[in-house]
């Protein structure tokens, strides 16, 4: 194997951390000592781009970014493209938050009522920017959209996450009334949700009486 091949092969492109080593892996074509095929195996290793995968490293996942740019240009309403693309921007460099948020805002411009995009945008604001008040408005929009129309199957996870992040951000803000209110609201839609249940139990609140929920309390 030449130096070029070794470099190309060992840096298998993947979303893992750069420089992360994998010591005990095997590829589709087994190594000679694991291959029962004898000369057949040797022939396959010669004609295919085979390399010993043990101890390989991965390339920078940001190399895939142009593809996310391409897919969102081709279809600006392709929500998963924006969600995963923003995550890829941040995966290798946490300081590129503004770029990731701008990418998500672009998605929101084309799909303002996307539950997943609103929730994802709010999640970044909560986790990375601690901008709870701003995140709340996006979460409210996600929840309102989910309640006013039946969410598509692929948006249900984002809908449930919207309630979870709403509960968590109110907990962080120290507003127990709001935290409990949104936990009960969440349980109306998702009765088994762990985060909402835990919020009620941690505050010694009864579970299963969500229908008697009062109106949203004031901040």
């Amino acid at each position: 194997m030449t130096e070029r091949e070794t470099q190309g092969a060992r840096e298998a492109s993947n979303g893992d951390e750069i420089g992360h080593h994998h010591h005990d892996e095997t590829g589709a074509i087994p190594e000679p000592e694991r291959d029962p095929r004898g000369v057949w195996g040797e022939l396959e290793r010669q004609v295919k781009p085979y390399f010993d995968v043990r101890g390989h490293t991965h390339r920078d996942s940001r190399e895939t970014l142009p593809l996310f740019r391409f897919m969102t240009w081709a279809d600006p309403t392709f929500v998963p493209g924006y969600v995963v693309g923003a995550q890829v921007i941040l995966s290798a460099d946490e300081t590129r938050l503004d770029e990731a948020l701008a990418f998500l805002r672009e998605g929101l411009r084309y799909s303002p009522n996307s539950i997943t995009l609103n929730t994802e945008y709010a999640r970044h604001l909560i986790v990375k920017r601690v901008a709870y008040a701003e995140a709340e408005s996006y979460l409210k929009r996600a929840i309102q959209t989910g309640n006013s129309s039946k969410p598509a199957d692929w948006e249900r996870e984002g809908f449930q996450d919207a309630y979870r992040w709403m509960v968590l951000q109110w907990r962080k803000r120290g507003n127990r009334q709001q935290e409990l209110y949104w936990a009960r609201e969440g349980l109306k839609r998702f009765p088994d949700d762990g985060i909402c249940l835990r919020a009620l139990r941690a505050n010694q609140q009864p579970v299963g009486q969500e229908d008697r929920q009062p109106h949203e309390p004031h901040d």
Partner: peptide
């Protein structure tokens, strides 16, 4: 086994002639 297209794509060296 008769298809070396992936090796051409990834610019590998020549195969041993015994293959």
């Amino acid at each position: 086994f008769f298809d070396l297209s992936k090796k051409v794509t990834y610019e590998w060296d020549l195969l041993p002639w015994w293959v």
